[in-house]
């Protein structure tokens, strides 16, 4: 069984936010007005955060300040607090370790958004909207099943959404392999943020495959995880700067 995960080398990351933009276009995240954005209602499945994001530690005075950046997709935790609290199983962890979100079942109680310590979950405060030019370029991709609607499908208002590691790309890659009657290889599946990364700081792959690049990098002495102490067992691994 595959166990998808991501490694981010912070030494290479230039904080260009290309990942955030690639994600936005890949996954049809709605655009909000500047006023709404000022209220913190913009939706960025992959965000680039200044660290520390809050004044919990001293970063010094300019020009001797130590400002760092952290690019943050969903951690796809092995012990996901969001999945534990969902009353209707609208969010769940599939057998390949991806924490998924079903827009057709979510009741909008926002317990998962409250429970997630990484802030990776976003709520649709209004019906998603795009300017006519942007609306023409919405991705038609979607992941549909019996009573489920996932992936980049345009969300209704009042539901929660989150990073899915571009789950539709996995399904497409599998389908292609099947139609060409050959075995599916892990390298065929890459999320948009990994594909677009300017500095090639992101690595994606099957953690159960010890020969995969991501898997090898994960055993680096520089490897760490964000908020390791809250017991979520995050799966996205970062490589420390310097």
């Amino acid at each position: 069984m595959t166990n998808w995960s991501m490694v981010v080398d912070l030494d290479k990351c230039v904080a260009c936010q290309g990942c955030s933009i690639a994600c936005r276009f890949e996954n049809n995240t709605p655009v909000v007005s500047p006023e709404e954005a000022a209220l913190g209602r913009s939706i960025l499945w992959n965000d680039v955060l200044p660290m520390p994001i809050n004044p919990t530690e001293d970063i010094g005075e300019y020009p001797h300040s130590r400002r760092r950046y952290l690019t943050r997709p969903c951690m796809h935790c092995e012990n996901p607090p969001c999945v534990k609290v969902c009353p209707v199983q609208a969010t769940y962890r599939d057998e390949e370790g991806i924490v998924r979100q079903n827009y057709d079942r979510c009741i909008g109680c926002r317990f998962c958004t409250v429970a997630c310590p990484y802030g990776v979950r976003y709520f649709n405060w209004e019906t998603p909207s795009w300017s006519p030019e942007m609306a023409r370029h919405l991705s038609p991709e979607r992941v549909v099943g019996q009573g489920s609607l996932e992936g980049p499908a345009v969300r209704p208002k009042g539901v929660v959404e989150k990073c899915t590691f571009c789950i539709h790309r996995l399904q497409k890659a599998r389908a292609r392999a099947e139609s060409e009657e050959r075995e599916f290889r892990a390298e065929e599946y890459t999320p948009a943020c990994v594909q677009t990364c300017t500095a090639k700081a992101r690595f994606f792959g099957d953690m159960d495959d010890v020969t995969a690049t991501a898997s090898i990098l994960a055993s680096s002495p520089r490897a760490f995880r964000v908020l390791e102490d809250v017991g979520t067992h995050p799966k996205v691994i970062y490589l420390q700067e310097g």
Binding site: C86, P87, Q89, C106, I107, G108, C109, F111, N124
Partner: peptide
């Protein structure tokens, strides 16, 4: 709670698809 829900139209889902592991249940 119903006022607070984003999708009150799916209220019945709590019973139909309820997960007993969730504190809301």
């Amino acid at each position: 709670i119903i006022i607070d829900m984003g999708r009150p139209d799916r209220l019945l889902s709590v019973i139909l698809n309820g997960r007993l592991q969730s504190p809301i249940l």
